[in-house]
Design a protein around this nucleic acid. Structure first.
Length: 261
RNA sequence: GCAGGGUUAGUGAAGCGGUCAAACACGGCAGACUGUAAAUCUGUUGGCUCAGCCUUCGGGGGUUCGAAUCCCUCACCCUGCA
């Protein structure tokens, strides 16, 4: 059955330019953006997560930003439920839902309709305690949700590295260090939200054990290793249409939408 | 100028006659991932015609069955005395 709402998804590594492509598509297709990002859902974590500021949003509605406090627990299941609700809601209002983000698990939960085991399941993988043991019935399902276009942006490592380094400088000029200091005081350093690349790197700088230059270098390094994991995650997804051209992305998107008319 | 210390794979750093292609850390590469995922975890990392072979431990020359490890010498770096 071909009854699912059309959905456009944009994935890519951190700093690859997902946000600007999403806004461009939203303007052309009259869309609204759903952010699939495990860190921008936190209130107050703005600069360090490269959360699009109001001005950058260019009047396009952005959903799933500032949903919970950094101290609160938030999981894929929460995201999946809310994202599906939003997709219906946006479609019902005559707009096009565009889901964009770098959190592979969040994206896959929606586009592959993951079925999660009950919360009371406590069996853990002995090698990696953060993973829940899965039973054989919940093997990875790679059947893409109908009416879904998944666009992927891929940059060369050198280009990405340069963009990340420049972004760090920009964040700092915008007041990133103050943001880290305030969040650290308010929520403590132990909350998992604060384990994100930039916050983790600048904690030591704020506590005085490393220099500014060292902190920046660690931030870049952390972002690069995140980017590496994101690349690995997305590579195995055969449903992704890779592109690095905005025009091409627009073509793919308009084709999908016209097929649905 | 004299005395002493140093020079090891991408980087830092062990090794101090054989079991060394060389510990360990970082970086690199590859992978996993279904209610913490910007997190967490795994493998790999000199070359090759890859269960074996070849070339590496600042350069050159020796000693030895055998050297990254000992000796001589050259180069560069650091420290003490002049």
């Amino acid at each position: 059955m071909d009854t699912r709402e059309p959905l456009i998804v944009i994935v890519g590594q951190t700093a690859s330019g997902k946000t600007s492509l999403a806004i461009k598509l939203a303007q052309i297709l009259d869309g609204e953006i759903i952010c699939a990002d495990s860190r921008t859902i936190y209130k107050g974590m703005d600069l360090g997560t490269a959360k699009p500021a109001k001005e950058e949003q260019a009047g396009i509605p952005h959903h799933m930003l500032d949903v919970v406090e950094p101290s609160e627990r938030y999981t894929v299941v929460d995201f999946q439920r809310e994202a599906n609700r939003l997709i219906s809601d946006i479609t019902n209002r005559g707009k096009v839902p565009i889901m964009v983000g770098g959190t592979g698990l969040y994206i896959d939960a929606v586009i592959f309709d993951y079925k999660f085991t009950p919360q009371n399941s406590t069996a853990r993988n002995p090698i990696n305690p953060r993973h829940l043991l899965t039973d054989s019935s919940s093997q990875r399902d790679t059947t893409l949700r109908p009416n879904t276009l998944v666009l992927g942006i891929q940059l060369e490592r050198e280009v990405l590295q340069k963009r990340i380094a420049e972004r760090v400088d920009h964040m700092i000029s915008q007041g990133f260090i103050e943001e880290v200091r305030e969040l650290g005081q308010k929520y403590g350093w132990q909350v998992s939200a604060m384990q994100a690349p930039g916050y983790r790197a600048f904690r030591e700088y704020i506590e005085g054990s490393i220099s500014l230059e060292e902190a920046k270098a660690i931030f870049v390094k952390n972002d690069l290793s995140l980017a590496k994991r994101q690349r690995t995650w997305f590579r195995r997804n055969k449903s992704i249409q890779w592109t690095n051209s905005v025009d091409e992305a627009v073509d793919f998107a308009t084709t999908l939408m016209s097929e649905k008319q």
